[in-house]
Amino acid sequence: MSLATIFEKYPNRQYIMFGGKGGLGKTTFSAATAYYLAKKGKRVLVFSVDPQASLSDIFERDIFGKGNIEIIPNLYACEVDADKRIRDYQEEIRQKIISMYGMEKIPEEIESYIRASSAEPAMEESAIFDAVVDIVVKGDFDYYIYDLVPLGHALYYLSMASIYDAWLEKITGLREQMREYDRAIATMQREDVSEEDEIYKELMYIKNRIGASSKIMTDTEKTAFFFVLTPEEMIIADTEKAAGLFAKYDVPLAGYVVNRVISRGLLDEKIPEYLRNRIEMQAHALDVINEKFGSLVLARVPEFDSEIKGLDTIKKLAEVMFEETLS
């Protein structure tokens, strides 16, 4: 099957992810796929949570932290500024505390906690996680293309969802129990039962946010996860391992896309010895890929002689990826 037929056959798979080791072509493929789908008349949002601002690079536009920016008709790109999101959010929390308790100033203890929270690495990751939930739950695009940072990140998303799902279940249980005690104590002391539990409401909110994301990531009907790899033995081995891990989290694997395949036609030309060797090595690796992944290999994308940057090159790449001439 080809990449184009996958999109035709499964029009409901509107959440598209390219995963793979660093630098193999995830951003490139995300951009090219977004371009292709937009040219087909779909409303597409490609978004990145990578602070390296890679979509800005490939589209040659500064879109970092600016929201959804129209690149061509139907194609929107977005780069989340995680630091800014954290800062705004901390400020929101401060304001909430101040207005809740009618305080003039945040107590030192609380302030230092708020400040310290942004120094944690998990803060950035969980803020990004939440930003992505924000983007996808709005539902105003036909396609959402996640430009993921290397695999670890995707795994963080998935593991976070499944670990915290179970954890939140327990903690909301504890909270409910606490409410029971509150009620019992109030009755014994002949007091009114206290108001609604705001914390319980927050916990349910968090639970829904995390749940929404994990539901999308593991929904075979709606999600397609593609692995990007290159014809190299090491990469093949890593990809297999990662695919195994992802399978554990029930990620719907749609197929593999092989990148940077050097044309065998070059063998007939005068080329340096190292390139000749590389082509031979790739030929062997491609055999291994066929053996291991077979019909799940959806496209073999050639090595371009320049970096993939700017709409003209993206278009060329989309045309070879999807085997179709685009207007």
């Binding site: 505390i97 107590p107 203890e109 609380i110 929270s117 969980s126 803020a127 939440d130 914390i199 909110y205």
Partner: peptide, 21 residues
């Protein structure tokens, strides 16, 4: 001891300010 993702535990903070100290 990080237990809840920090982004979300910050959400609960306003509600437990009196208890924290």
């Amino acid at each position: 001891i990080p237990i809840l993702p920090p982004y979300y535990s910050l959400r609960l903070l306003p509600h437990v300010v009196p208890q924290i100290t």
